[in-house]
Design a protein around this nucleic acid. Structure first.
Lengths: 210, 210
DNA sequence: GAAGATAGTGATTGGTCACTAACTTAGCTC
DNA sequence: GAGCTAAGTTAGTGACCAATCACTATCTTC
């Protein structure tokens, strides 16, 4: 941990840049993150980033792609071998686990707002990529839960709400998280699979950030 | 419309600054928006903004607050006099209507990521404000739909998903929006109220942004 | 151990941006 | 119409930042 700045292959270095970029971009957004900050976190000089990537935008894109792939990896790992309700419940629980790893969730939101900004600026290159990746993630989840579009939509809806509550910094255990539990009255199908997993995890820890 | 730059009271000017700020911040985020851009949109010189507001952050905060208040106004107007399922359906429909007015939705997301960034930077002032306003909005909606926490949570979950799909620029009519319709199989309560309103609007127009 | 390739740095630059200071202009009142 | 007040501007500053360039250090291969 003392001297991490050993020589490394370009490929390995790119990998650590992406990891650092996810953290920095997640916390500060595209415009709020300086390439200097990423370089510092990686442990290399700022100009060297421009040898590894053609520009700042390319680093952001790589970080965003990584983030969506990682999300699927988490879902896949949690639900592998399962189907239908069980798969949905497992994935919900896994996603709730990501609340601890808020950078993962926030990088998503940063991607969303950046896509909008790009579109407003007249370029939609990153938007096309993002929609493709998101669509693929949606379809993969949908297959895993058994093809139900509405259930999958609801799954993602709750996911986006979780992102929001994490961003706003509502601590787990706050009233606002209560709606994720379904130990109460009606026990309808899809909502239950999300809610049940949520309430289990929500009660566990009380820490919010950093 | 020719000469909008008539003299105006500071209070009126502040109002137009807030309106301009919502658009600019929604499109480009906090860091991506220059005070110059806001001033240009308002039609005043950039330094004058600093007479009307103590700083850029204050303009952003005002825009964010306005945005949340406006959201409630839309909900309230749409559902006034209604209760329970009817109120929920009316508010869902009203929110879907905001898809056309994407700045309103995007300003929300910009607030969320900015709150996270502030917290990461060690300040949580805007976060406290945002949580308070968001919590109030949640409670107001909850009262309007009759006190059901889970139903309200689901309502907000779908709202956050809509924000995301708008940000990503999925055109209405795209497959990804299909899950908002519930004309199909099961007709469970809460999901129906969201879904029904959604599908009505979704089929209507095909425009996405700007 | 020389030569080529690959990893990495220091210095710099053109540009942007939030914010300040000092000044000007329009409207009001008596 | 002088004088006050509030609205609004022009000019400027220090900080920051993405990207480039010219250079050095380390590894590999023969």
């Amino acid at each position: 941990m003392a001297k991490t700045s050993m020589r490394m292959s370009a490929e390995e270095r790119r990998e650590s840049v992406v990891r650092a970029a996810v953290i920095e971009f997640a916390r500060n957004g595209y415009r709020g993150t300086s390439t200097e900050a990423i370089a510092r976190r990686v442990g290399v000089s700022q100009p060297y980033l421009f040898r590894l990537f053609p520009g700042k935008q390319a680093i952001f894109t790589a970080a965003a792609e990584r983030c969506i792939e990682e999300t699927w990896r988490v879902f896949d790992e949690a639900s592998t071998g399962l189907t239908g309700e069980e798969a949905a419940a497992a994935m919900s629980e896994a996603y709730m686990g990501l609340v601890e790893d808020s950078e993962q969730l926030m990088m998503q939101m940063q991607l969303y707002v950046s896509v909008f900004a790009s579109r407003m600026a007249g370029e939609d290159e990153i938007g096309e990529t993002a929609r493709r990746l998101w669509g693929e993630l949606f379809e993969r989840v949908r297959e895993r839960v058994g093809g139900d579009v509405q259930g999958t939509t609801e799954f993602f809806a709750y996911g986006m709400l979780i992102n929001t509550l994490v961003a706003l910094g509502f601590p787990q255990g706050h009233r606002i998280w209560d709606g994720f539990g379904d130990n109460g009255a009606e026990g309808d199908e899809a909502a239950a699979s999300n809610g049940a997993a949520a309430s289990d995890e929500a009660a566990a820890s009380g820490e919010a950030a950093e």
